[in-house]
Design a protein around this nucleic acid. Sequence first.
DNA 1: TATTGTTATACTCTATAACTATA
DNA 2: TATAGTTATAGAGTATAACAATA
Lengths: 174, 174
Amino acid sequence: MSTGIFVTMAENAADKDTPSGGRPPRPDLAAMVVPLGRALMAAEQPVLDAHGLTMWAYTVLLHLDETPIRTQAALAEAIRADKTRIIAVLDDLERRELIRRQPDPEDRRVRLLSLTAEGRRLRDTTQAAIQKGEERLLAQLPPADRAALLRALHTLYTSPELTARKPGRGSSRT
Amino acid sequence: MSTGIFVTMAENAADKDTPSGGRPPRPDLAAMVVPLGRALMAAEQPVLDAHGLTMWAYTVLLHLDETPIRTQAALAEAIRADKTRIIAVLDDLERRELIRRQPDPEDRRVRLLSLTAEGRRLRDTTQAAIQKGEERLLAQLPPADRAALLRALHTLYTSPELTARKPGRGSSRT
DNA sequence: TATTGTTATACTCTATAACTATA
DNA sequence: TATAGTTATAGAGTATAACAATA
């Protein structure tokens, strides 16, 4: 944690608004979202520790449940991770029998990824604990704002403008 | 970028809700906020590049404006950065005459930090460009949701529960 | 030749420790 | 001795390149 880029901008112009030509009437969106995200991650860390999961492992468990994924590369792509980075995570999850990693008989290069019963159980209890912590925060908001926040976040998060893949370099052949 | 932790959880249970004992009816808050923040940062990067600013430099310019800060350590603390990390940023900003860094006559250890006119101008044009990009995103939301989102983000961001300083290690003497 | 999974290497970012100059 | 600022070093996290197995 304490990886704090975009921190202070949020307090900017929160109340004072200079109408014409002055400071913008609202703080940058990123200036609130990024530090909030960092704080949320920091708040979740103890919960994950208590359940013996890293954030990557938790992300994998969460994603494996919804969509049965066939290849590790697809999983990595789906969670925007590098394919080389999740290997150690999968190794650990498999060793602890939270996931299965079976070679596909039809294409023996491929590893079929699936959640075990215990994996599902651990995911559920962990997520319950995490959301319980989040509820404490959301309780500060009026019910209408809370609903609008979740709705708006979902809209923005799934926005096609933001889902764009990393376009910079990486387009070199090979 | 592509530092993507907490990515997929957002799509979870977005529509299907299993009432009792099943999956939670909403995705984890962090699972939407963190990737959204990363996407926002990625979207801002080209704008910052065009204006010749790193995100840390932009953060410094933004913060220097609102609160006149006396010491570099205080600035670092305020933007949750390590005091050693902003030095190169300040060096660059000073060399480009976007900020001033004057020794305090009353305590010659201290550097008085202030924004130059050009620094203020660059900050304003950069922020205008960034917020213009953000407006494109926010335009997807109904006006009421947009207002609620900004209100809720500000509430959560300034929440005392999340403002807690890193409590772990660091409390060692020295 | 292309692709899946893997290992090994290099790079980026960040924090920690050590130093100076003032007080 | 304590503090502001600085420099140098080391560590964590990540991506890139190279490899083996299979298609």
